[in-house]
Nucleic acid binder design. Structure first.
Lengths: 210, 210
DNA sequence: GTACTAAGATAGTTCCACTATCCAGCGAGA
DNA sequence: TCTCGCTGGATAGTGGAACTATCTTAGTAC
């Protein structure tokens, strides 16, 4: 176990905690007081670490996720829907409809994302978020702006689908997709922020010095 | 104060807590036991709420942010750099160099983002993140993939710069930019996740039914 | 045979973001 | 005038989350 912890760069106590929480399957017993852990355990532990430390996903959400991934009887797509919902924190006081919700639904219609569940946590949260920021003289999220982000996301998702390594087993592929969802999402966030830093700097210094 | 709390949809106790934490300036005294709050207070409170509930930004980071925003002597760009660093959580055990860091630096060079500070928290975190996910048979983040995300971010940032409402005062503009950083970042995350849900669904059902 | 370590169980710790209680005082309605 | 409720301010308490420390028992390696 200490070797597993070392290789994933987490403490042994944390591994024990994850075992207890069901995030990690128990090791194969190689004696009454000894267990061995294989590559699948290590990979799982690394994925859990990425989701926790990079994505800040709470342990309770990870429990839902591993439960779905480890349930071999669940179709892959159903697992991914459960995962998407678990990754999305719910925003307090969610009105199920309203103008923001209509705005979201219409935008998804226009881009042709017909397969997104009406009750997907992402969809609900997006509507709640838009109605939250849209007050009075705050930020505006109108049809055109939303369309721009939707189109950009569409292009991004089409490209990302090509990057999935399909040579692995079910759990491996699912874990890659989940870790990729979180990790590449964070990469995009960081790059976007750096882009803002850059363009604000060159605007201040004057376009001439660019 | 209760009117302020109602209009921003937070509890009076929370407003008191934010006042104590320095996230909100005290109201103008209209009597020995009475204070009034204006639109700037309301706007600030709404921004704080968005950063907390949507962005999950910790209160300590918000303290750094409002301190910078309220310091009129600080140049706008310096404020935004401080904000960017405050928005970015530090990843434990950060090696200042290594192959991942070189990968990041080279990618930013290629896109021409020369004005991003070498010690920007985003830059450091991105390198740490890449070295974290890149282990063994995990996700690969190579030059080409990174370039793709950088180019997409570049396009996104160029567009987003057009959307800023410059008719407000300093604090208003800064707050818009900060709230926008967080809110539109989250919008992008949600849309991307929905895009994945959609494309995975149509791939399973077969392209014929699309 | 002795020192070290493993696995497991249980309880404790730390941090965070609020939240509840208390206090003293003013202002408005009966 | 007299309460009643509400104000702002201070202080202490709460609940949840994610570990972390301790203890126990028992193999294992030299």
């Amino acid at each position: 176990m200490s070797e597993l912890a070392d290789r994933a760069e987490v403490s042994v106590a944390t591994v024990k905690y994850y075992l207890r929480a069901g995030l990690l399957a128990p090791g194969r017993r190689s004696g009454p007081r000894l267990a061995t852990y294989d590559d699948a355990h290590l990979r799982r532990l690394r994925v859990v670490r990425i989701l926790r430390e990079v994505g800040g996903i709470p342990v309770t959400a990870l429990q839902q996720i591993v439960e779905a991934v480890d349930d071999e009887s669940k179709p892959e797509h159903e697992v991914l829907c459960l995962v998407a919902d678990a990754l999305t924190p719910t925003l307090a006081d969610v009105p199920p409809d309203g103008p923001a919700r209509d705005l979201v639904d219409a935008a998804l219609d226009r881009v042709g994302w017909t397969a997104v569940r009406p009750d997907a946590a992402d969809r609900v949260r997006l509507a709640a978020l838009i109605s939250m920021v849209g007050g009075d003289d705050m930020l505006t999220v109108d049809r055109d702006i939303l369309d721009y982000y939707v189109r950009l996301s569409d292009e991004l998702c089409r490209t990302e689908r090509e990057l999935i390594d399909k040579t692995k087993d079910r759990a491996g592929t699912l874990e890659d997709m989940i870790a990729g969802e979180v990790a590449f999402g964070e990469i995009l966030t960081l790059l976007r922020r750096m882009g803002h830093e850059h363009y604000h700097a060159v605007a201040r210094l004057g376009p001439g010095s660019h």
